[in-house]
Every structure is written in structure tokens, then in C-alpha cells.
């Protein structure tokens, strides 16, 4: 029972939301894009989206400059 966050194996916790996972991973930067199994999670659903077991999660943090 595990998930992968940015390629790193992490224990899966039942009923954990995206918001809770970001906190657990200490991803504190305010600007992130989250995809679960290649599907975008809108920012407005971070508190209600539950992470499924074996999920592959990508958390992308953008840095200013262009």
C-alpha cells in the first residue's frame, strides 16, 4: 500500500486528501500544480480530493523568471 509522489515511494494513508498530503510531504510553497495519475486536480478541490492507493502523484512548483 503505497503511492509515488514525484517518483518517490510514500506510504498510502486511507482517506488522505491532497491538502493533507502536501502538508505531510512538507510542500509548503504556495504555488503548485498537482496531477494524480496524469489528471489535473483543480486547486479548489485540494481539500476534498482523496488520494487513491497506488496513485502516481506529480507536484510541480513553478519558479519565477521569463
Amino acid at each position: 500500500m503505497s503511492i509515488k509522489v514525484n517518483g518517490k515511494q510514500v506510504i498510502w494513508i486511507e482517506n488522505e486528501t491532497v491538502k493533507q498530503l502536501l502538508k505531510r510531504m512538507k510542500y509548503t510553497f504556495p504555488l503548485v500544480v498537482v496531477k494524480i495519475n496524469d489528471k489535473l486536480v483543480p486547486r479548489s478541490s485540494y481539500t476534498e480530493t482523496i488520494i487513491p492507493d497506488k496513485a502516481k502523484i506529480a507536484v510541480i512548483h513553478m519558479i519565477s523568471g521569463g
Binding site: 503548485v32 500544480v33 489535473l40 483543480p42 486547486r43 513553478m62 519565477s64 523568471g65 521569463g66
Partner: peptide, 11 residues
């Protein structure tokens, strides 16, 4: 340019 705009755009 800014991280905030980049993030919103990608989303």
C-alpha cells in the same frame, strides 16, 4: 514571468 501567473496558466 511570475510563478503565480505560470501556475494559473498551466492549471
Amino acid at each position: 514571468d511570475s510563478a503565480e501567473e505560470k501556475t494559473i496558466f498551466i492549471e
